[in-house]
Design a protein around this nucleic acid. Structure first.
Length: 321
DNA sequence: CATCAGGGCCCTG
DNA sequence: CAGGGCCCTGAT
């Protein structure tokens, strides 16, 4: 347990329009103890350049004149330079610099999307974690039900992730890749990771070796980036698609519809139980072209926001706990 | 009780 | 390119 007693406030100014809660909270994601969202306040831990921080964000502006109050908590006073770096990183992760005018322009009149756009205009895709951390999450998702994924990640947090206390919150933090690398596969298997233990070790290794540098990857064009990501052990077509979208903010890359999403998009797009993946792929491409990932994200998250208010029996059935 | 698939991916033939 | 195997769990 570590107390973070220093804090600094920074004002962030996302490009308008901006939707705060749609960006910081993704109801379709499974719960994890490194973040919390409640009453329009968002908290997370941040493992950045070898140090651990607490983050709090609140909206202080409006959709058209966006402003976000970012508070960085730390265990010692931060330098101006570091404050700047962290702010820049947060802005990237929550995609606060993007211009979505083209999206609204070309997809705004789509009859399926337009009501959702009205509700969520300004929502961004986001990944609150680094690439390495995202790989961990992708790995625990594979071939497992939600409940088991949650269990695996929490086991990892308990063993490797220090708890941070800040702003009256106590949240888990991610660990350096090194701590996974230096523990045995056996120790990892004890966390009920199964064959994923090997995957996590091999993934940790490429980050330690410096074979993968997230910053560098952000400069690559989609195809090169995709190939590089696919070369990572344990990353296949399903994971790579999520990474390209959530981590690297590629709005138009969809070439694979995994079973669970297949069922959900069959309902959303065709109001049927199960359409073939190819049909879904064709449909999203026809409708939204280069913006299809983002469009699908709007529909998907809107569905899970609705689930908080209304009963959606077919969806409840699909969420296997 | 045993069997099996799950919000994949790797590896082999 | 198809299909078996992989860890563990809970559903059947």
């Amino acid at each position: 347990m570590k107390e973070l007693n220093f804090s600094v406030d920074i004002k962030l100014h996302p490009t308008p329009p901006f939707n705060f809660r749609g960006t910081v909270h993704k109801p379709s994601h499974f719960p994890e103890s490194d973040l919390k969202y409640e009453e329009n306040t968002y908290w997370q831990t941040l493992h950045f350049k070898g140090e651990k921080y607490g983050i709090q964000m609140q909206e202080t502006g409006t959709a058209n004149e966006p402003e976000v109050n970012l508070v960085i908590f730390s265990d010692e006073k931060l330098t101006d330079n570091l404050i700047k770096e962290i702010s820049t990183e947060i802005k990237y992760r929550f995609d606060m610099n993007s211009d979505l005018a083209g999206f609204y322009e070309s997809c705004g009149s789509d009859e399926l999307l337009s009501p959702v756009l009205k509700k969520w205009k300004g929502m961004r895709v986001s990944s609150h974690v680094s690439l390495y951390e995202y790989l961990v999450v992708s790995t625990v998702l594979q071939n497992a039900t939600v409940k088991r994924s949650v269990q695996m990640l929490e086991n990892l947090f308990q063993k490797f992730g220090e708890s941070l206390r800040f702003n009256k919150q106590k949240l888990s933090s991610f660990w350096p890749a090194k701590s996974i690398d230096s523990s045995s596969e056996e120790e990892l298997r004890d966390l009920k990771l199964g064959y994923r233990a090997k995957t996590l070790k091999r993934q940790a290794a490429v980050f330690i070796d410096g074979k993968i540098k997230e910053k560098k990857l952000r400069e690559k064009v989609t195809e090169k980036l995709k190939d590089k990501l696919l070369s990572i052990y344990g990353i296949g077509p399903a994971s790579v698609q999520n990474i390209l979208f959530e981590v690297f903010k590629e709005y138009g890359f969809v070439n694979h519809i995994p079973p669970w999403e297949q069922k959900i998009y069959s309902r959303l797009l065709f109001n049927e139980e199960e359409k073939p993946p190819e049909v879904i792929l064709q449909e999203v491409d026809n409708r939204w072209g280069e913006w299809k990932s983002l469009a699908m994200h709007y529909l998907f998250e809107d569905l899970f926001w609705r689930k908080k208010q209304e009963d959606i029996p077919w969806l409840e059935e699909l969420i296997r706990l």
